[in-house]
């Protein structure tokens, strides 16, 4: 049996439906085991609860049922064992690159000099050397997401939770960021849970792709990606890669049509 880094036991989540007695079930019975240093992606139709699930993993919101275990210990609130990379540009605009990356260390009451040194190294790791004293509004979208990543890694989390971090970037920048992420992941050996709606992104990055079904969100299938690493961009044109993408697209297709209310076309 493989060692387990992150485990979820029957996670379910219900939300009260604004003012009415109706209860909306967003997630139901999600049980997963993720190995140390594994890169796992979650794909699913929009509204399938991927982001909610990730927020539960971080401890930002509690599950309605079930539990999240990291190294066998239950998660009940955010802490430095997990780093969260947000989809939306959530950098503090009044803090410089350095200030943003140092935030988590400041919360941990690390000595200032040490925090500064750690932040400087990480800013270099994400390729932003020379931009330490820039404010977020002076950086491009891609650079801001690099800061976002450096900020999450700064507290040296064992698990990185990434919520569609490249969704807002243009296609070229996104591809560059995917390579960068793999490079950083290779250097830092983090366990990564990566939420995306881009199937090729999920296949390119991951060891396993978890396909979510919608309404309520649940695991539909787990697809192992046996592509060799390191993966160059050219891998995206290999037959193997395309086969994985097609397979996941097939799994998702029903979900997408189901959730958009459109009848599935007959092939």
């Amino acid at each position: 049996m493989h060692p387990t880094k992150l485990e979820t036991l029957g996670i379910g989540k219900q939300f009260a439906n604004g003012g009415t007695d109706e209860v909306l079930t967003v997630l139901t019975d999600i049980s997963l085991r993720i190995r140390p240093s594994e890169f796992v992606s979650i794909v699913g139709a929009s509204g399938c609860g991927k982001t909610t699930f990730l927020r539960i993993l971080d401890g930002l919101i509690p599950p309605s049922s079930g539990s999240v275990l990291i190294d066998g210990r239950e998660v009940d609130r955010p802490d430095h064992k997990r780093g969260f990379v947000f989809q939306k540009d959530s950098l503090w605009p009044w803090r410089t690159t350095m200030g943003n990356v140092m935030f988590g260390l400041q919360i941990q009451r690390r000595p200032r000099g040490e925090a500064r040194e750690t932040a400087r190294k990480l800013i270099e790791l994400v390729g932003l050397k020379g931009f330490e004293s820039h404010y977020p509004h002076q950086l491009s979208g891609g650079m801001r997401q690099r800061v976002n990543l450096a900020r999450a890694i700064a507290v040296n989390p064992e698990v990185l939770l990434m919520d569609e971090p490249f969704a807002a970037l243009d296609a070229q920048t996104r591809e560059v960021m995917q390579l960068e992420l793999l490079r950083i992941w290779g250097a830092e050996k983090k366990t990564v849970v990566f939420v995306t709606h881009q199937i090729d992104e999920a296949v390119f990055l991951s060891d396993r792709v978890i396909v979510f079904a919608a309404r309520p969100g649940r695991v539909k299938e787990i697809v192992p990606i046996d592509l060799p690493r390191p993966r160059p961009f050219s891998i995206k044109r290999t037959e193997q890669f395309v086969r994985h993408v097609d397979r996941i697209w097939g799994l998702l297709e029903e979900e997408v049509f189901k959730s958009s209310g459109v009848e599935r076309p007959v092939h």
Binding site: L60, P78, F84, D89, S90, L91, W92, F103, I107
Partner: peptide, 17 residues
């Protein structure tokens, strides 16, 4: 901005922080 608050929460910041 709610997302700025949540980002701080994800680092374990308490209410006063």
């Amino acid at each position: 901005d709610e997302s700025l608050i949540e980002a701080a929460r994800s680092f374990g910041a308490n209410g006063f922080e």
